[in-house]
Design a protein around this nucleic acid. Structure first.
Length: 900
RNA sequence: GGACUCUUAGCUCAGUUGGUUUAGAGCGCUACCUUGACACGGUAGAGGUCACAAGUUCGAAUCUUGUAGAGUCCACCA
């Protein structure tokens, strides 16, 4: 049996334990017809990512779930992996190449991709290594990457299927364009930031008139060079006479039409809007309605192109804006400038202001996919925790827009679409296949006539397949059949649309089955000031530092304790002290029990006795024994209910309270005293064995939350086989027949008597060195028996010389007193008593009770309450009434005696 | 503009369907205690009219509405 060191050192233990688990292949799950599968998939972190507190929370939760289920006997499989993160990764690699003076475009696509892959091999996936530090029980053999061959195949397959179904199409649309990344972004990839901009009022001269103008207000004057109309509201009488006439775009000197459209709000600005179909989504729609020319005036870098007057060509959009405003001012056409607050879209990756831009992109038609995905959530086949997110989900799903899936990047899954010289498109897994398909359309096509689309797919286009692509879909296989669908998805609510919704759509569309049954939305981790953790604020602690300081168990436990379902968490490192202190407590309890066992075993040896076997006579089962068993089973029950309801903070709190307060504060203290008081080595052995077995079962309950320390101690509790591990031990089941609340109340009474005496000691300033006696006058024999059969415990815990309990005991003169459950507790003080202190103590207590009594009396004298309240509630109030008045009477008697 | 969340002890927060809650925990604070597991500890204690107002109810921290403050998401923004 291993001896536990004086203090617990997670640093020495955690790596060793993790290695033990990994080397014994305890994380690996196989198809096992005898067991129910329980599968979860990690939300794949970016390959460029490092571990953040958000990941810590997410993975602590997932690991708790998966370990819990594994110990319940499920074939638990947690599949890890990473996401190729198109833009983020391309950025990182471009940046590192730039340090060597290399530009992406100079080395070309193929070479660049080679560099990305080698970057990935060298630096990527740091986070996967870091997760091990946290203790995650992932099936590392199944680790996947969204650009793996298998996953890439799934992506192409899906693209082709959707294309053939008509759900993927190519179209010209206004997209969110990032001029820095040179790519389109989906609506979700744009962050709108409120900013203080300006509204510029510009006069457009009416063609052929020297004095007449239409004034428009704009926040982006540079786009006026691409104006192809001016729009007013059809009901707006101010402009009615101008509709159908033409005005001249200042500086560009082009004449454009004045049109009427309902979109225009007559009350905003001047009521007249410049229309730039190629650079604004609303204007684009108007352009379609009125058949306007779409005039692109910028290039993909946000620089003005050849469609603008020579002076502005090549200027950056903002430089052009400044120049243009100056020119307008000089010509007198800039009427005025107003401050104007508006929100401006920024690229979620590089924070550049996005530019609405007309271009050719690929889209997924979402509505047909959204309908069934909405239904499974509304029907409850997929449940959200907390439930309120279903509303958000429903809202998005019923207002869904088509998904722009093409990205003008190099790093990603290249779109498997090929263009014929005629402009026709074929879609195929390989170029050979594409060629075959193309030849059906035109037999003269040669390999060089086919041009593959240059774009890659949105990263989420691979992420949405994750729950089944990680199981090698589209290939039918045993793993897929057994492990799909997964059970619980743990993720942040910020990606409910990006990821959660789309996974549900994909699962139903391609697999005909939901991808998971439960979705647990984690809290957001904030700093002590309530700000989001972010790189730029530098307020995000490095979890590895925290682990080094406090230990992974402490971090996990703390984070789970702090994170109630659906509420944000204000985190600071000091909070981990709580988890660390708890780990220390667990450790020391184990150390104490093992030390006692050791010394008792020693006594057998000295006495020349043999250690009793399993069939040895048990020591007498006392109240505290039955109590701890009852409490243990109640704890198991409560814990299971909390776990099933995803109330992890409750689960963690339940076990914390049981282990620290019930087990350590009371049960171990009782056991300690019994062992000290006993002279029978067999009895001592039985007591310590019983305590150890409760302790061992409790460690199992705790293991999903604090895996390292529980394994380390568990290994030391008895001789274990080399393959044995607590992580595959079976979880204790609650035996409800052993939960006895009546008996627990007896124990509570005993505890309260002990506390009452301790209170008297403290308040009368009686140091432990001063000997006291305890007399308890009971109203019935049952109460008295509880005390008389635990005299030793009371003596030890209150440091009393004598303890007397019985019915109709005389009250000792000059004593401090207290009433516990109607029983009078006296501590005779013989000259030690400070009458004033005791008097004010009693007066205060009586006053408090009288307050309570008044409350109860008021209730009971309320006729409607008596008439309408249920019988049990009424009974309780009556009991309270009796309790309070009897206690008051007894305390008053004590008070009077003290004064008399 | 629409939706959602939060406001409980000095701080950070629990409190599941209204009545076994006389509103709890951790940290901090006060007093006592190094008693052979643990000072990362033990014992005892102080500290709250549950943001405010109205309502529903026999009964509200808990349900409804409103007000104030904090925050999140969606849509729009010429």
């Amino acid at each position: 049996m291993a001896e536990l060191s004086k203090t617990y050192s997670p640093q020495e233990v955690e790596d060793k334990i993790y290695h033990f688990w990994e080397s014994h292949n305890l994380f690996h799950a196989r198809v096992n017809p005898e067991k129910q599968p329980y599968t979860i998939a990690i939300p794949p972190p970016n390959i460029t990512g490092i571990l953040t507190m958000g990941h810590v929370l997410n993975n602590s939760l997932q690991d708790a779930f998966v370990r819990w289920k594994r110990m319940q006997g499920f074939e638990a499989c947690w599949i890890p992996g990473t996401d190729h993160a198109g833009i983020a990764t391309q950025h990182v690699v471009e940046k590192s190449l730039r340090k060597d003076g290399i530009e992406r475009r100079e080395i070309g696509r193929e070479e660049f991709l080679k560099r990305v892959w080698s970057w990935k091999e060298q630096y990527g996936g740091t986070i996967i290594k870091q997760l091990r530090k946290l203790g995650t029980s992932c099936d590392w053999e199944r680790e996947r990457f969204t650009m793996d061959e298998g996953l890439s195949k799934a992506v192409q397959e899906v693209f082709i299927r959707l294309f053939e179904k008509g759900l993927v199409y190519r179209g010209k649309y206004i997209v969110n364009w990032c001029p820095k990344d040179h790519t389109a972004l989906s609506d979700d990839e744009v962050n709108y930031v409120d900013s203080n901009g300006h509204l510029w009022y510009i006069n457009y001269p009416v063609e052929g008139s020297a004095s007449e103008f239409i004034t428009v207000a704009t926040t982006r004057p540079e786009t006026m060079l691409g104006d192809t109309a001016i729009a007013v509201n059809p009901k707006d009488e101010r402009y009615a006479h101008l509709v159908g006439k033409r005005v001249v775009v200042p500086l560009a000197e082009r004449a454009i039409a004045v049109i009427a459209d309902d979109y225009v709000d007559a009350a905003f600005g001047t009521g007249a809007v410049k229309v730039t179909p190629a650079h604004d989504p609303n204007d684009y729609q108007m352009g379609i309605r009125h058949n306007l020319e779409q005039m692109i005036v910028m290039d993909t870098s946000g620089k003005m192109n050849l469609n603008v007057p020579r002076k502005y060509q090549g200027m950056d959009r903002y430089e052009c804006r400044r120049e243009l405003l100056r020119d307008l001012d000089q010509t007198g056409l800039l009427l005025k400038t107003e401050d104007h607050a508006n929100s401006v879209g920024h690229c979620y990756r590089c924070d550049t202001v996005i530019e609405p831009y007309l271009s050719d992109q690929w889209f997924v038609k979402m509505q047909p996919l959204a309908e069934p995905a909405l239904k499974v959530v509304q029907d409850g086949a997929i449940k959200f925790y907390p439930e309120r997110w279903t509303k958000v989900y429903e809202h998005w799903m019923t207002n869904i827009r088509d998904w722009c899936i093409s990205r003008q990047l190099w790093w990603g899954h290249r779109i498997p679409a090929y263009y014929l010289p005629s402009g026709a498109i074929v879609v195929a897994l390989t170029k050979e296949e594409a060629l075959e398909k193309a030849r059906v359309l035109d037999s003269s096509i040669g390999p060089n006539d086919l041009r593959q689309d240059e774009d890659v797919l949105d990263t989420w286009f691979s992420s949405w397949l994750w729950p089944f692509s990680i199981l090698n879909w589209p290939e039918e296989n045993e793993d897929l059949k057994y492990f799909y669908p997964t059970d619980t998805l743990v993720t942040g609510p910020d990606i409910i649309f990006f990821w959660v919704a789309r996974m549900i759509m994909a699962g139903l569309e391609f697999r005909g089955e939901i991808p998971f049954r439960h979705v647990y939305f984690t809290s957001i981790i904030r700093d002590a000031q309530g700000r989001k953790m972010s790189k730029s604020l530098g307020n995000s602690p490095d979890p590895l530092d925290v682990i080094a300081t406090y230990g992974a168990d402490a971090l996990r436990f703390t984070v789970l304790y702090l994170a109630p379902l659906g509420q944000d968490v204000m985190y600071s490192n000091e909070k981990c002290e709580m988890g660390r202190n708890f780990a220390n407590k667990i450790w020391n309890a184990g150390r104490f029990l093992l030390m006692n066992k050791d010394s008792i075993l020693g006594e057998f040896t000295t006495a020349g006795l043999s250690v009793p076997g399993a069939s040895a006579p048990e020591a007498a089962v006392e109240l505290s024994d039955r109590w701890i068993v009852s409490r243990f089973n109640a704890t198991v029950k409560e814990l299971s209910l909390s776990m099933d309801a995803f109330r992890i903070n409750d689960a963690v709190k339940t076990i914390y309270d049981f282990l620290w307060h019930d087990f350590c504060d009371w049960y171990v203290e009782f056991a300690k005293n019994r062992i000290a008081a006993s002279s029978d080595v067999n009895e001592k052995y039985a007591i310590i064995t019983r305590a150890l077995s409760i302790y061992e079962e409790t460690l199992k309950l705790l293991h999903p939350f604090m895996p390292f320390i529980t394994e380390e101690i568990w290994q030391g509790l008895s001789e274990r086989g080399t393959d044995e591990s607590i992580m595959v031990a079976s979880l204790p089941q609650a035996d409800e027949t052993l939960i006895d609340t009546e008996m627990e109340r007896s124990m509570e009474f005993l505890q309260n008597v002990i506390s009452a005496v301790r209170t008297i000691r403290n308040e009368m300033n009686l140091p432990p060195s001063k000997s006291i006696d305890v007399v308890v006058n009971c109203t019935d024999d049952t109460r008295a028996l509880v005390l008389t059969s635990n005299v030793t415990a009371i003596q030890k815990m209150t440091r009393a010389a004598t303890v007397e309990a019985g019915v109709n005991l005389a009250k000792p003169g000059y004593s401090a007193s207290s009433v516990v459950s109607g029983q009078e507790v006296f501590v005779p003080l013989k000259g030690l008593i400070d009458v004033d202190v005791e008097r004010s103590r009693l007066e205060k207590e009586i006053a408090r009770l009288q307050g309570q009594l008044r409350g109860v009396q008021a209730k009971l004298s309320n006729e409607t309450f008596v008439a309408k309240a249920p019988a049990d509630v009424l009974q309780k109030e009556n009991d309270k009434l009796n309790n309070f008045s009897q206690t008051i009477a007894k305390l008053t008697a004590s008070l009077e005696q003290l004064q008399g």
